[in-house]
Design a protein around this nucleic acid. Structure first.
Length: 463
RNA sequence: CGGGGUGUAGUUCAGAUGGCUAGAACGCUACGUUCGGGACGUAGAGGUCGUCCGUUCAAGUCGGAUCACCCCGACCA
């Protein structure tokens, strides 16, 4: 056992999850209850997720924009089921100026300037965006309108969990407006497929996708399609959702356009999003008892080089290490040489292991003699000696292989937990008290034959 | 909102039945020796024991109140 070990998964999965976050320095609790501080290393992962996702969003013809953090309370109330779903978790701003106490003590006391209309802090941006869209859309020529925003949102959940459910979190929300339902449905599917592929190609997580049940669909949507991943403890986690909003919002926010024939119609809409919860999914899908394991595509550092030297050969080892860094950087930009002094090599091994760096290269006396370097891959912890000549190609291959290995593990896990097709009643019975395995059911209705419904408690239960 | 728990150093915690001039580990600072799996030595810095009130010659320790946080439920598109 190491000095400050991480709790084993088998012992306490929930504690293991928290330990990995702490030891990998991804995030920590803040002074504000339910809100976490995302530390530089954790944020770097988010930035890589953003980079990869933003590219794919733009490929769908979607533009980025930014809308206000505050939403007039009356906006939220316009769509009946929407307000019903979100009201309970909204933070509300009722006053706008603090004032100093009259006694001159400088103490700040409660404000007395009451807002004319209360503002809520956005729990999602449908309403504030669609109010704007109603002015942007007047003709069929304005459609489709496709907008995405990267933002923070606030949902006052009673219980929180780092990355999985926090009071404030970061996400991306796409909102589109179309002239026909057929076209908006296509968009719902396109976003859904984008998430599915993103999970596989970038996060190396195989997902189960399908239509969410009536009770789990988005408040205000006609239908919600979700992608769910299976974690190592056998529980499911919702990664992303894509909503068919029908005309529910366009009717109450007056998003209307004049069609080619000169008639005025309500538009058809979609919305879809993924959040920082994906970082939680990466942790739970890939990591082990030694710490974080990151898929190379989103690892902030994909190769770390650790020189091992004594006072006698320090100069030489450092020089070779710098050369190796240059070599590795010809194939991966984000390689790093850890040349910190007064920190032992063993400490460095441990630290980068906890942080999930996919490949570690060790360079010491033994390697120099043989003209090789020692390469250790994080996913399997296998060590091998690689000659310096073939290093760059070897690194490239290994990174690809790590990404593939993580995905195939994830695939296997999902396959082993085969979805059972059950009657709705049987499904409900089994779900009750269950850990939250993904289980699919067919409600028996003809119109549902093509989209088997599924439900999971993963997003509604903490572990 | 129910049930349980905890507030003592930067962090994690120890301090039965009141006697404290409040400790440990890790972390931190300085110097030196180290460096193939979390190094070591020496010297240091660091605290109104969550807050308020009470009991007592004496409170980290006992009582009351209050605040905060954590866990288990309930709730959670």
């Amino acid at each position: 056992m190491s000095k400050k070990g991480i709790t084993a998964r088998s012992q306490n999965y929930s504690q293991w999850y928290l330990d990995v976050i702490e030891r990998a320095q991804l995030a920590e609790n803040s002074s504000v209850k339910g809100c976490m501080v995302i530390k530089p290393y954790g944020y770097a992962i988010w930035e890589n997720i953003q980079k990869e996702l933003d590219k794919r969003i733009k490929e769908m013809g979607v533009d980025n924009a930014y809308f206000p953090l505050f939403i007039p309370l009356s906006f939220l109330s316009k769509e009946a089921s929407h307000v019903k779903g979100f009201a309970k978790e909204c933070a509300v701003v009722t006053h706008y100026r603090l004032k100093e106490a009259d006694d001159g003590s400088g103490v700040i006391v409660d404000p007395d300037a009451k807002l004319e209309e209360d503002l809520i802090v956005r729990p999602t941006s449908e309403t504030i965006m669609y109010d704007t869209f109603s002015r942007w859309v007047t003709s069929w020529r304005d459609l489709p309108l496709k907008i995405n925003q990267w933002a923070n949102i606030v949902r006052w959940e009673k219980r929180t969990r780092p990355f999985l459910r926090t009071t404030e979190f970061l996400w991306q929300e796409g909102h589109t407006v179309h002239s026909t339902h057929e076209e908006s449905l296509k968009q719902v599917n396109e976003a859904f497929e984008m998430y599915r592929e993103f999970a596989k190609d970038v996060l190396a997580i195989d997902v189960y996708g399908g239509r969410k049940s009536e009770s789990e669909k988005f408040a205000g949507a006609v239908n919600t399609y979700g992608v769910e991943a299976l974690m190592q403890d056998g529980k499911a986690l919702q990664l992303g959702t894509s909503h068919d909003l029908g005309q529910n919002f366009s009717k109450v926010f007056n998003i209307k356009f004049t069609n080619k024939g000169g008639d005025i119609e309500n538009a058809w809409q979609t919305s879809w999003g993924v959040s920082t919860r994906m970082i939680g999914a990466i942790i739970m899908a890939h990591s082990d008892d030694l710490g974080l394991v990151l898929p190379p595509v989103i690892a902030p550092i994909s190769v770390v080089i650790i020189p091992i030297y004594t006072s006698e050969n320090k100069e030489e080892v450092l020089k070779v290490s710098k050369d190796i860094l240059a070599t590795v950087q010809t194939v991966v930009e984000n390689a790093k040489l850890d040349d910190r002094e007064f920190v032992s090599a063993g400490f460095k091994f441990n630290e980068w292991e906890k942080k999930g760096v996919p490949i570690r290269i060790e360079i010491g006396e033994r390697d120099l003699k043989k003209n090789v370097v020692t390469v250790v891959r994080r996913d399997t912890n296998e060590r091998s000696e690689v000659s310096i000549n073939s290093l760059s190609t070897q690194i490239n291959m290994t990174l690809n292989d790590i990404q593939d290995t993580l995905l195939s593990r994830s695939k296997q896990r999902l396959a082993e937990n085969t979805h059972e097709i059950l009657s709705y009643d049987e499904f409900k019975k089994q779900l009750k008290g269950n850990k939250g395995f993904i289980k699919a059911y067919w409600c028996g209705k003809k119109e549902c034959e093509d989209a088997i419904k599924y439900e999971t408690k993963a997003t509604t239960r903490c572990f």
